[in-house]
């Protein structure tokens, strides 16, 4: 299991980036006690047999890590969802992409802590790759949205220490606004 919900989200979003997608989206919402997350990509997708094997911790995509026999991303997610009374689902079709949805009951004592959301978003926005990445955040009805292409344009690039510090400030300020009591 990964330590926080944000760690799990990072791992799942990175799978989406690695699928050859030109567009990945993350919708991360807290509604009452529930953390509800949808990660969608338009990458290579998986057939039904591959979807079943993807939940097996002793299977990984052939050729991804030659000589290795474990693939823990989705199994960790399933374990985290199961143990806090949440759920997860996988929808995928070859050539069309994959959608991973899950929800954690954050009031459950066995739910992982949420983790550091701004740090996670900075990390995901700077994952290497050409495709665009859209984030939608919600806390009990309050929302904001931003795309990687918009941040890249505003900051003139995403990878220097200066750009990363400013992006950190952007997400920290937007997250603080979401968490304000109404």
């Amino acid at each position: 299991m990964l330590p926080t919900a944000c760690d799990t989200i990072s791992d799942i979003v990175q799978n989406a980036f690695e699928s050859g997608a030109s567009e990945v989206s993350l919708d991360m919402a807290r509604r009452g006690n529930w953390l509800e997350v949808v990660v969608r990509d338009n990458g290579k997708g998986m057939d039904e047999a591959t979807q079943r094997r993807a939940l097996d911790p002793f299977w990984t995509e052939p050729g991804k890590h030659p000589g290795r026999k474990v693939g823990l991303g989705l199994p960790f997610l399933k374990q985290a969802a199961d143990q806090c009374g949440g759920s997860m689902s996988l929808e995928s079709a070859p050539g069309r992409g994959t959608t991973v949805s899950f929800r954690f009951d954050e009031s459950n004592v066995d739910a992982p802590p949420t983790g550091d959301v701004p740090a996670m978003l900075v990390q995901l926005m700077t994952w290497p790759g050409e495709g665009d990445f859209a984030v939608r955040r919600e806390v009990d009805g309050r929302t904001y949205e931003v795309r990687r292409s918009e941040l890249a344009e505003a900051l003139g690039g995403l990878h220097t220490g200066g750009a990363l510090s400013m992006m950190n400030e952007f997400f920290a300020s937007n997250e603080a606004e979401l968490e304000q009591p109404i």
């Binding site: 900075v122 990390q123 290497p128 220490g161 990363l164 510090s165 950190n168």
Partner: peptide, 16 residues
């Protein structure tokens, strides 16, 4: 990111 920010090392590239 924080340490580079504090030292004003704005040109160092951070990747993953």
């Amino acid at each position: 990111i924080a340490a580079l920010g504090e030292k004003k090392l704005d040109s160092v590239v951070v990747r993953q």
